[in-house]
Design a protein around this nucleic acid. Structure first.
Lengths: 343, 343
DNA sequence: GATGCGATCCGAAACGTTTTGGATAAATTG
DNA sequence: CAATTTATCCAAAACGTTTCGGATCGCATC
């Protein structure tokens, strides 16, 4: 069935060793011999058994990533963009990507153990870090190469390779923008406090208010899940309890779309009655109605750089910077389009 | 470093065979022995070397998919949804997903050979079939399990397992809807004729016109790439050359968004001046402004069923139906919201 | 003529697992 | 008690590759 080195050896009259070395391009095989062997391999349609090769050489040329199943991760815009960057970089580097989707009630570390201790990948990419993330703990103590999209929560050490965006400054700039447009009662919808970046966004919000001399009011901050419904429910709760609010910041675009929907459902006009802003600048932000003010982060490039960094670490040639904090940029669109008169 | 069966054997006093069989749950090992071995495995933190296991047993519990790099595949909405379904089903079945991204100038079949003949996966999922798709040829002659999202182009035999949607009927229903709303000059933007489904959508368009007694005019049909720009340019060209058009059908939602943008760029109102429809019913269709009339297809479920079907084929228990044609459903939204007076 | 050296080749081990085909001793059966 | 069955265990082979440590031979060097 399968053509192996042994078949080529038999047909060519050379040993398996020589065949292997000929095909691998070693210099201790005669040029004619090599030609001969290559030709026979060609005729037989030889395709190396990569599993055997990986097993023997302990290198898989594969990068792993574990995503939570039933979590709409792939649909989140952010994740799609990240995967796009990862996928393209992986193609360039001739690596493969092994994805394991983990059932919510399965032991999380188990999925990582299977990949790492199971020898299936040379390195791992982590996304959506949480406070005190046990996955990072595990990978650190294993000494297995990994890179992280995002960093430790505020106050935690981030003593591992990561790429993150300065979302603190990002949210701060949103608040600043809102304040410039005359808003003073600004709501914030955060994702679960467990997420590592939640703290940074919260801090950015506080800083923005402080810049403008607006007192921080904890009741203006609510929490929700990372998706449409989280934004919708968060906005409902904010608007129910605090009708004085004139602006809402959601922590990603999808939540912002949900928030816009809640605003519109009350007969209010997004952008005029209530300003809304998101985060990420996914394509949906542009297509939304009204188009969404948001904070752009270079997600695609982050995906690419994560792969390059990880492969550098794997091959022992890490890039000079392995802890990267990128700036992000406010994108003003119609969802915050109208300045308010000051009052 | 790595804990192997040998280590457990040494520590427990039993042979490697017995340890292996104990952990694998065979009945020919004493209950106490098994307990003992399991406990030692636990203490040592044994994690089987999956690479070795796969290599030996010729089963990887992994499904492969190859995506074109630099192709925005992950961002296409359709693909994200499909991956979501695939990922979730894979988690349920405890399989993994191996993704290889193929550089555009690499030999396409090579990527498949690496996966298939390289023994890296038990089966493959193919998407975006083309006319006379060489990948299908290859996988058929290899006798390697695979399933296809989409089927052969019209006229080609589809003698392989697939799941597709009856997009011919789908487009036909869009035309019918447009006709009912008074449109008679309806443009169509198709993707490359090379794509297998292009033929079906074209036929559906022709049928729809025939139903209404409207003569088919080939100049109302243009071709573009599958993304935003394809729709934008297609619509530009249609509107430039045929100002009498009052409706445009694009072959997916992203193209429809591009077409809407072209319409709006001319100061025309989508839905009133020019009706626009898409295909797929991705989330972007709902968030768009105006919300997009489109044809819903159950992409997530297709992804799930593809995985189930493939695993069935791999394990020798294929589902009763391995060639599935699903209905799709017209979703009318504001982008085709206004009926025209007949003229 | 012995020595050394470069070019070319190869046998055997190794990677960690599963499986095959028994071996052994105890228990059961006739 | 002999024969058979059952329960429990194991040695060795096998999967296909890479690599280690030579082996062989012709040729140049001293």
């Amino acid at each position: 069935m399968q053509v192996t080195l042994k078949d080529i050896a038999k047909k060519s009259g050379f040993s398996v060793t020589t065949v292997s070395r000929a095909l691998a391009g070693y210099s201790d095989v005669n040029a004619q011999t090599r030609q001969h062997i290559i030709q026979i391999a060609d005729v037989l349609g030889y395709q190396p058994n990569l599993l055997a090769r990986q097993f023997r050489s302990q290198r898989t040329h594969t990068i792993g990533i574990i995503i939570p199943a039933h979590d709409y991760a792939f649909s989140s815009g952010f994740f799609s963009q990240l995967m796009l960057g990862i996928g393209d970089a992986i193609a360039v580097e001739h690596y493969d990507l092994l994805i394991s989707a983990q059932e919510p009630d399965d032991d999380e570390i188990m999925a990582y153990r299977r990949m790492v201790a199971g020898n299936r990948v040379d390195g791992m990419i982590l996304a959506r870090t949480r406070q005190n993330d046990p996955r990072i703990q595990y990978l650190k103590e294993q000494g297995h190469p990994f890179v992280v999209s995002g960093r430790g929560a505020p106050g935690e050490p981030s003593d591992f390779p990561y790429i993150d965006v300065d979302s603190q400054a990002g949210i701060r700039s949103v608040v600043q923008h809102f304040v410039e447009f005359g808003h003073r009662a600004i709501g914030l919808i955060l994702p679960s406090p467990e997420m590592a970046f939640t703290g940074f966004r919260h801090e950015g919000y506080c800083e923005g208010l402080a810049d403008a001399g607006i007192p921080y009011r904890p009741e203006y901050v609510v929490y929700g899940d990372l998706w449409w419904t989280g934004g919708y429910q968060g906005a409902q709760s904010l608007l129910d309890n605090h009708p004085e609010l004139t602006a809402i910041i959601a922590c990603n675009d999808l939540m912002a779309l949900g928030a816009m929907s809640a605003v519109q459902g009350r007969g209010l006009l997004v952008g005029r009655d209530i300003a809304v802003a998101g985060f990420d600048d996914t394509p949906a932000a542009e297509y939304a109605y009204p188009p969404l003010t948001t904070v752009h982060q270079p997600i695609y490039e982050i995906g690419q750089r994560l792969v390059k960094m990880l492969i550098g670490i794997i091959t022992g040639t890490p890039p000079p910077e392995t802890q990267v904090l990128l700036p992000c940029k406010l994108i003003v669109r119609a969802s915050s389009g109208f300045a308010r008169e000051r009052y």
